[in-house]
Nucleic acid binder design. Sequence first.
DNA 1: TCCGTCGGATTCTAAACCAA
DNA 2: TGGTTTAGAATCCGACGGAC
Length: 362
Amino acid sequence: MPYAGHYPPPPPGYPPFYAYSVPPDPAHHDPNAPNGTAPPAVAPFYMAVPPPPPGMFYVLPPSAPGYPYPTGVPAPQPPPKQKRKQVKMACTNCASACKRCDEARPCERCIKYGLAETCIDGVRKERKKGIKRGPYKRKNRTASGEELPSAVEGGEQQAAPVPPPPPGYPVPPEGYPFPYMYPPPMGYVPAPPDAQHSDGSPPNGAPPQPFYPTPALYGYPYGAYPGAPPMPYPPLVPAPMAASPNGAAKADTSASAPTSAATNGATSPDASKGKKRSRGKNGDESSRAAKKSKESPPDATQQPANGATAPATVGAVDKEQQPQPQSQPPQATPAAYPGHVETNPPVTAFSGPEPRPLMAAM
DNA sequence: TCCGTCGGATTCTAAACCAA
DNA sequence: TGGTTTAGAATCCGACGGAC
């Protein structure tokens, strides 16, 4: 089932959370379920979020745990990343090249590059002794030995960063769950309506009439789980095309800065790896020296901090402190709101005026 | 396209800490 | 004393630039 056009895709590894093209008819619930009984709340029901009003976008926290699953329903974990296995000791050639080595001698890489004769184990440096530490922080564990991350480090779970609303829109009340709606970012061109586009768009290809939220729309989660009280559809407030370009642009810049990785679709935690590097010759030399200095005698490495500001550090700083361009060119492609992802022509499925719990059993 | 280079994330592991 | 935690040290992923 493709996503509705206004929906951002779920995080990697999550199943589609928008399961029905038409809200399921309660009269046709699971025939296996006992008469008149709702499925148990522990069943894999997902919170379904109806399409936002035309012209609106849901804003999702980039790091929202479990979204879009309601509280109490464990979200399926993406397949765990395979742990990298290291060899006990890389050969000197691989170590200097920062390349994968293996246990064999000569190792595969040395054979490949004709370095078999020089493929020898390096010497592991002895660990320094007598280093004092601060008091231990005991990890909170369950009876089965599993860690409880929330109980660590003060026990407070970090709230997901809340994107600032555009100018003129109230900040969602503290604690309000995602998603909530914002007007589209500057430059957004709604997908052309088609026969399946049941969001009220004019059929002649004109862009949909935008709607803007009342404060009541913020943070309105359409909780959908068995036993949940029915929720009224929030009122839609039509507004003029007042999406002031300036205002939108401001919102664009302010909102995109901290979460640009997410907005680029790089929602993976490895997004930081995508950064570019400059490779100045000086930096190379100095960092190389710094790396080599690791192998220097302990006396050299145990110099106090003031002595540690070696050229390597300076070079690194130089590279890092490249001046950023002061003025940013206007963004043609809008990716202003975390979680907002442009999608292909929409298949807006929710057509009813009332939200219905959309459920998907796995 | 291949290869060298290298920043930094990830992993390993030994020393320090701590409870029993 | 043995298990746990911490952090130093090593590995190597992945991106880049240069050579061919």
